[in-house]
Simulated assay, not measured.
Amino acid sequence: MLRRNFLATSTALLTALTALPAIAQDEPLKVGFIYVGPVGDGGWTYQHDLGRQALEEEFGDRIETTYIESVPEGADAERAITQLALAGNDIIFTTSFGFMDATIAVAEKFPDIKFEHATGYKRAENVATYDARFYEGRAVMGTIAGHMTESNRIGYIGSFPIPEVIQGINSSFIHARKVNPEVEMRIVWAYSWFDPAKEADAAAALIAEGVDVILQHTDSTAPLAKAQEAGAIGFGQASDMAAFKPSPRVSSIIDNWAPYYIERVQAVLDGTWESEGTWAGIAGGEVEIGEITDAVPAEVRDAALAVKDSIASGEYHPFTGPLNKADGTEWLAEGQTATDEELSQLNFYVEGITAEIPQ
């Protein structure tokens, strides 16, 4: 009797132990994405979706991905993230700054799900953050802009007045001024990440002020289309925007999220995922510089690539003193560089920019 009970218990235990791994292996890891724009925006969301596609290519049927596009920041974001959580996703990437609070709120309700928030700073045990040093790419674009402007007026289309965008404005201006001390910067705010009509209007307003080089921190190709009409030049934002080569798009900042997504999903599969914050740039391959076309003179291309190479090697930091704030007070002394903490909270323009930051 005892022997029969022992054998029955042992058989049941063995069956349970061997069955569990088989279930885990048969079920793909579910990976969800929340996008602020449409996947066809040609910029920010397009690049994140390329990263999602790279995941599918890398892991095949070991994973299953899904996404919700064109999600407004705010209450709608919390509903969309919750929808992905309830659908059984094991890890969810929320890919816009304005999704930060919604991500934290949903993560509290689903402690067994892992969340990754792009460009934010709030973390939790099951929430990691990831960002890119876009300001490094802006230094390269600013160098080209300073050389290429004939009116000495360059323009910048901002999305929202947050540190990430202010970093880009300052970096572009600093490096344009380094090669052309006569440069002035005009700034127009779209108050949107993706709104082709608003972006086109912003570009038109800048061109009306005599701007002949346009930089942007918005996601559509509308500013390039306006630049093309006016004979101005511009740059690809987030993606290459190659349809506008060789001009008005003379170069681009390309966000390459694929390696990060592959690394983090692999960590989930391996059971090694941890909450952390990452901020990579040119050196890490997360910020790439697109082809500098023949519309740019060779000497200007060489100067821009020299800036890129010096940043990549760690020899140069785009925010290196002496630099003053717009009100004339000292920010960085000779040779001093800005800390990551300072940059993550940046809320002022550098000296020479006369615009006001909206509050």
Rank of each mutant, 00 (worst) to 15 (best):
S344H: 10
V250W: 00
D90P: 00
V39A: 03
T9Q: 07
A283E: 03
S344G: 14
L14P: 02
G40L: 07
P72A: 12
T65G: 06
V296I: 14
N324W: 01
I311K: 11
G168N: 11
G321R: 09
F33Y: 06
S96W: 00
A176Q: 10
A204T: 11
Q228M: 15
I282G: 01
A16E: 15
Y316W: 12
R138C: 14
T15S: 13
E315C: 05
L7M: 08
Q345Y: 05
K122P: 00
A118P: 00
D219C: 13
G231L: 09
H117N: 03
A75K: 11
R153A: 08
I292Q: 00
P161I: 11
K308F: 13
H217A: 09
A203Q: 06
V265G: 03
V140M: 05
T82A: 04
W193Y: 10
G271Q: 05
Y316Q: 03
I187Y: 01
W189Y: 10
I166T: 02
R4E: 13
A232R: 06
G40D: 12
A105H: 09
I262G: 04
A304G: 02
T278P: 10
Q53G: 09
R123C: 04
R123E: 08
A298D: 10
E342I: 01
G37R: 01
I169E: 14
L17A: 15
E69A: 13
E299R: 11
A8T: 06
L86K: 10
G74Q: 13
P322N: 07
R79C: 01
E184M: 05
V36F: 14
K114M: 11
A312Q: 10
D294S: 09
D302G: 05
L20T: 14
G158I: 08
T149L: 14
Q25E: 12
N347A: 14
Q345S: 08
F235H: 01
P72S: 15
R3K: 14
T293C: 06
I91H: 00
A77M: 06
L7W: 11
S192N: 11
N256R: 08
T11N: 04
F59K: 01
N180P: 12
N347D: 15
V265E: 06
T354E: 12
Y156F: 15
Q336W: 02
P358E: 02
A16Y: 15
A139V: 12
A24N: 10
A190I: 11
